[in-house]
């Protein structure tokens, strides 16, 4: 039975600018894309061009006049032992942390794709490190690793793992310091990777797993021969995000070690900050940070290519 339209439905729809855009498909998509494009141009594109410009200049944090100095800043940087240490540390920090991120995120995603009681709470807890401000999280870890009050050491001693004279200095010994910042970075990135891989898992049609089960495939066979190949492209996207976030991150290192002990956890991002902002040499800082760019572009192209090739259609 049809109902008569109510009084509100009979009112003429106002035809303002918003209405015209909202109802016009050819105007709507550029309007919706515009903020994202504007954001990328203003906050990514312009700063990038500016850092290119700065890196071949003698600009400081305080100078308004910018003189062209060619590749002088790059020459000075590659002559510095700190730069090579920072480059090596950035690579180690990124590769080791992302290896563990992939392993843990896959395990968590498979676990979270199953139905169990309280799943929403577990998902929320796993997401917390990602949604909480990283500076706050890093300060929490700073206390966990504290040289005097470390809760890790205290607990280990209480349960007898550490003897009365053992007291690891997490942020003061080179290997432990690197391990500490890697652990925090894993803790930070795993939630994002888990969510991405979880989305990939939920897009696998049930028919495939059902058919495999009918053919007698067990959990491990289904996991390694069906699930992992199918989520490989999206896993690579998660790794790409992780690599970029880790290679360009300075907060974890800045809060926990400030590059110490004696530059053994210095990464390119923190070295760029110390040189450009703390030291006042904006041009030098820009040149250090630009070393990141070709590496990240190469990694992005490689990962996206591999992802496309492994895509199952």
């Amino acid at each position: 039975m049809m109902r008569a339209p109510g009084p509100s439905a009979l009112r003429p729809v106002p035809r303002g600018l918003f209405s015209r855009i909202a109802d016009n498909e050819t105007l709507l998509w550029p309007a919706l894309l515009a903020p994202a494009i504007l954001y990328i141009v203003l906050l990514v594109g312009l700063p990038f061009l500016l850092s290119l410009y700065y890196s071949v200049s003698d600009v400081t944090v305080a100078s308004r006049a910018v003189n062209f100095v060619g590749l002088e800043n790059f020459r000075r940087i590659v002559e510095s032992a700190t730069f090579w240490t920072a480059l090596r540390n950035s690579v180690i920090f990124t590769i080791v942390s992302q290896f563990f991120v992939v392993v843990f995120a896959n395990i968590l995603a498979v676990a979270l794709s199953a139905d169990f009681r309280g799943k929403w709470l577990v998902r929320l807890l796993i997401l917390l490190p990602w949604v909480a401000p990283i500076s706050l999280g890093a300060i929490g870890w700073l206390w966990i690793y504290d040289s005097i009050y470390s809760i890790i050491n205290w607990t280990a001693r209480a349960v007898g793992i550490l003897g009365p004279n053992d007291w690891p200095i997490w942020l003061g010994q080179p290997v432990l310091a690197m391990a500490s910042i890697i652990i925090v970075q894993i803790w930070r990135i795993v939630p994002l990777a888990t969510v991405i891989i979880l989305a990939g898992l939920s897009s696998i049609p049930n028919d495939i797993n059902d058919a495999a089960a009918m053919d007698g495939a067990g959990f491990w066979r289904r996991t390694f021969q069906i699930t992992f190949p199918l989520v490989m492209p999206i896993t690579l996207v998660a790794v790409l995000f992780g690599v970029i976030f880790t290679f360009t991150d300075m907060i974890v290192v800045f809060v926990l070690t400030r590059g110490g002990p004696y530059d053994q956890t210095q990464v390119l991002a923190t070295w760029a900050f110390f040189t450009g902002i703390q030291g006042g040499d904006l041009a030098g800082g820009a040149a250090v940070s630009l070393f990141l760019f070709p590496v990240l572009v190469a990694v992005a192209i490689l990962f996206l290519n591999v992802a496309r090739r492994t895509e199952v259609t």
């Binding site: 040289s147 010994q173 002990p261």
Partner: peptide
């Protein structure tokens, strides 16, 4: 000394002395 001084921030020596 001990290696803890390699990890310090400006308030660490205060904490160590007070502790």
């Amino acid at each position: 000394m001990t290696p803890e001084v390699l990890a310090w921030d400006p308030s660490s020596n205060n904490r160590q002395m007070i502790a």
